[in-house]
């Protein structure tokens, strides 16, 4: 069974009586363990697609099966539960709570599951360690570099052990070295079996994935395996 199956997905935005179609009938499947880049210019609908796939937004018509379950029929609370359990997000703008420490930011998703606060802190430390930030536990986002912020965000996305990590332009606000470190992290997670869905408008970033879905004007224009996959190295240098 595919992890994600999309059937004739359409999404319209209605604003002041004018209906603007954003996604015009998409069909595709994503299997467990894939690393898919959704690529397209701005306004192509790639972010909207990611939001729908990540249960942040709802579709207008069509069907979305996640692990065999029809998501379009779920109510708000079930969607919240799906977001908490099955997916993790990494945003371009990091979206960290500005006045909370790295640790507090990382354990935010755990506040909505039954755990003792000692367990939360323990888990939070483990995940911050896994992104190499065990020395930054008590720093607030303002005291972190862009790359460090995004690593905190990745740790936050991982902490619920989700099936899928969604990354929306995760390198967009980073210098190239920090960007490569983030890609390295994502590739490592994929090597360990996580499904990664990456949204980007850059060919180079998309080439770190294993498969690229190209979207233009709300339709898929190509769906290909990446032939010459970029592998980000530990120190941020390129390696083929």
């Amino acid at each position: 069974m595919p992890l994600i199956k999309i059937v004739d997905l359409k999404k319209d935005y209605a604003s002041e009586g004018v209906v603007t179609p954003v996604l015009r009938g998409l069909n595709f499947e994503i299997q467990r363990g894939e690393f898919v880049a959704i690529m397209g210019p701005s306004g192509s609908g790639k972010s909207t697609l990611m939001h729908i796939l990540g249960f942040l937004d709802t579709l207008t018509t069509g069907q979305y099966f996640f692990d065999g379950q029809d998501v379009s029929t779920l109510d708000e609370d079930r969607l919240a539960e799906m977001r908490g359990k099955n997916v993790g997000f990494v945003f371009q703008a990091f979206n960290l709570l500005p006045r909370a420490s790295s640790l507090e930011n990382v354990i935010l998703p755990l506040l909505y599951v039954k755990l003792s606060s000692a367990e939360r802190i323990e888990t939070g430390k483990k995940y911050l360690d896994s992104v190499g930030l065990s020395h930054r536990l008590n720093n607030t986002p303002g005291q972190l570099s862009g790359g460090e912020k995004q690593r905190v965000a990745i740790a936050r996305a991982l902490i619920n052990e989700p099936e899928v990590i969604f990354a929306d332009e995760p390198t967009g606000n980073l210098d190239s070295k920090s960007g490569l470190q983030v890609m390295k992290l994502l590739q490592g997670l994929n090597d360990h079996g996580h499904t990664i869905i990456l949204v980007t408008h850059e060919r180079y970033t998309a080439d770190h994935a294993k498969r690229v879905l190209q979207i233009r004007d709300g339709v898929i224009v190509s769906d290909k395996k990446v032939d010459n996959r970029q592998i980000a190295s530990e120190n941020g240098e390129l390696k083929k």
């Binding site: 990540g54 942040l56 708000e76 609370d77 919240a80 539960e81 977001r83 908490g84 359990k85 997000f89 979206n95 709570l97 500005p98 935010l108 998703p109 506040l111 909505y112 599951v113 936050r156 619920n160």
Partner: peptide
């Protein structure tokens, strides 16, 4: 404004409206 973003984030990581 600030809190609205925070609410969006909390919802994105699994909080229900009631929570």
């Amino acid at each position: 404004e600030e809190r609205t973003k925070e609410i969006g984030l909390r919802k994105a990581v699994g909080a229900t409206n009631r929570q």
